[in-house]
């Protein structure tokens, strides 16, 4: 249903292209903070997302060998899994985590790099992010990189060979929406690779605004998982991303302080 398309790019209408592969959905979603795996899967199905992030963690040893696993609910045959480095605070930890992910997922190269710099706010550590990105690209990874909304950093990450730039809209898990749309615009205008908002989306209008700015996509987790009704919110996000994308492609009307130009004819009035 949400499987990535192997079809030639031209057969998809306005595909999202990342590292040479085409995706129908411009909404990427995380798999954390859900009540259970059934709810995770139902929300992802409702979102229409094809690319879903997963974290890499120590396996519980000797606890319950038959406990269900996330990947039984999200088979790699149906979804493009995007392993992340959430919780890593150094380039070395991030690189090590993604090498394990590549082994876990049978050589899968597309990854989400994030290196945090502050445990309280979860702000990224840009220096460590750049260092890890360089190592990973040289090692053959296709790096989608989470970073601050600084255009100069974004340019450096693109020059290192990352396949997508993913600036924060606001802090991870904050739901504060897009705090600096003008920085995002600068990053979008200068980048030749896709720019996706990652982190900070709180509700559907935030996702629509990101897309109207010209983002290639939006990645979110908490906004869906912690909604009162995650499955309903997942559907709302799908529509918001689609609506925002169509509005961006359509080109909005110019803003005017006032126009004195009513939408109805000014002639033919009765009396």
């Amino acid at each position: 249903m949400n499987a990535p398309s192997d079809a030639p790019l031209l057969t998809l209408d306005d595909p999202l292209i990342i590292a040479g592969r085409a995706y129908r959905s411009r909404l990427l979603v995380g798999t954390g903070k859900y009540k259970d795996f059934a709810q995770t899967r139902a929300a992802i199905d409702a979102s229409g997302a094809e690319i879903v992030t997963v974290a890499i963690r120590r396996t519980n040893i000797g606890q319950n060998p038959n406990e269900p696993s996330l990947l039984e609910h999200l088979p790699p045959s149906k979804f493009t899994l995007l392993p992340n480095t959430a919780g890593c605070f150094s380039a070395d930890e991030a690189v090590r985590t993604l090498k394990l992910a590549r082994e876990l997922l049978d050589g899968h190269a597309l990854v989400k790099l994030e290196v945090l710099g502050d445990a309280h706010t979860l702000f990224p550590n840009v220096r460590q992010t750049l260092c890890a990105a360089e190592t990973l690209v040289k090692d053959g990874f296709e790096v989608m990189v989470y970073t601050s909304d600084d255009p100069v950093t974004a340019r450096e990450l693109e020059a290192l060979g990352c396949v997508a730039i993913m600036p924060l809209a606001s802090l991870i898990g904050s739901g504060m929406g897009i705090l600096n749309p003008w920085n995002l615009r600068l990053i979008i205008e200068q980048s030749k690779i896709p720019v996706l908002v990652d982190a900070g989306v709180g509700t559907a209008s935030d996702a629509a605004v990101a897309m109207e700015l010209g983002c290639a996509g939006v990645l979110m987790n908490t906004a869906i998982a912690l909604a009162q009704d995650p499955i309903l919110m997942a559907g709302a996000m799908k529509k918001a991303v689609e609506a925002g994308r169509e509005a961006f492609r359509a080109g909005r009307m110019p803003r005017k302080y006032y126009a004195a130009s009513p939408s109805s004819p000014t002639t033919g009035l009765i009396g």
Binding site: G32, T40, V54, I56, L81, A86, N221, T222
Partner: peptide, 10 residues
């Protein structure tokens, strides 16, 4: 030895 799996995450 480290043994890891994929878990839910954003």
């Amino acid at each position: 030895i480290e043994v890891v799996s994929a878990v839910g995450g954003g």
